[in-house]
Amino acid sequence: MNIYLLSALFCLVFLFATVELIRRRKLQEQYALLWLLLGFVMAGFSLFPQLLERISRAVHIVYAPSLLFLIGLLCSLVLILHLTIVISRLHRRVTRLIQELALMQERERRGGRA
C-alpha cells in the first residue's frame, strides 16, 4: 500500500464524513464548502499522482508527496483563518444581542413600575 492509495482512501472517507455532517445539519453548508474543496483537491492529487508529480517537478520539489503535505497545510491555515473570522462575527452579534436584551429588560421593568 503506497502513500497515494492511503491518502486517496483517507480523502474519500473525509469527504463522505463531511457530506454526512452536512446532511445531519451538524455542519452548515457555508462553512462546509472549504472542507469539501480541500477534500476534493487532496483526493484528486492522490488518485492521479502523475498530476502531482508534474507540478512537483515544475516547482522543484524532489519528493512529490511533500507537495501534498504543503497543500494540506496551507488549506488548513486558510480554514483556521476562516474560523477566526466566523468567531469574530459571532462575537459581535452576541454582544449586540446581550446589549439589546439588557435594554429591553430595563424598559420592561420601568414600564411595569409606572
Partner: peptide, 19 residues
C-alpha cells in the same frame, strides 16, 4: 441596565450610548 452576561467595558459603555 443589567447586562445578563459580562460583556466588558466597551460593550457595557455602548449599551449606555444606545440607551
Amino acid at each position: 441596565i443589567h447586562m445578563p452576561l459580562n460583556v466588558g467595558i466597551g460593550g457595557a459603555m455602548q449599551t449606555g450610548y444606545r440607551y
